[in-house]
């Protein structure tokens, strides 16, 4: 097994996650896709950690997870608030920022 194998897997999962963010309309699913992308990054970190004989990659995974948890909590709270106000969680219909 080489490092490249893990990196390739990570790239593929990252791409899939990105596709999800780009093409889905449901904000919750978009969020899930984001989590998927973060997971892909975590695979990267773990792989480098192993092949460079270092521990900090794994420590970083924990930090990423902490941030992901925080993000999920706040993001989902935002989605709830949004749903309360707009009766929708469709990204197409949420365009407060339209210029």
């Amino acid at each position: 097994m080489t490092l490249q194998h893990y990196l390739a897997l990570s790239a593929i999962i990252f791409g899939i996650g990105m596709t999800g963010v780009l093409v889905r309309r449901n904000l919750i699913v978009m969020f899930m896709s984001l989590e998927l992308m973060l997971n892909a990054v975590n695979i990267n970190l773990a792989a480098f950690s192993k092949y460079l004989h270092a521990m900090n990659g794994q420590v970083f995974i924990v930090f990423v997870m902490a941030v992901a948890a925080a993000e999920a909590a706040v993001g989902l709270a935002l989605i709830i608030t949004l749903f309360k106000n707009k009766e929708t969680i469709n990204a197409d219909e949420v365009n407060f920022f339209k210029g």
Partner: peptide
């Protein structure tokens, strides 16, 4: 250029990509 400012997240992400 104001037409680029759609207000949709996905457009913005797409331009980032």
């Amino acid at each position: 250029l104001r037409h680029l400012q759609t207000g949709r997240i996905q457009t913005y992400i797409f331009s980032m990509v």
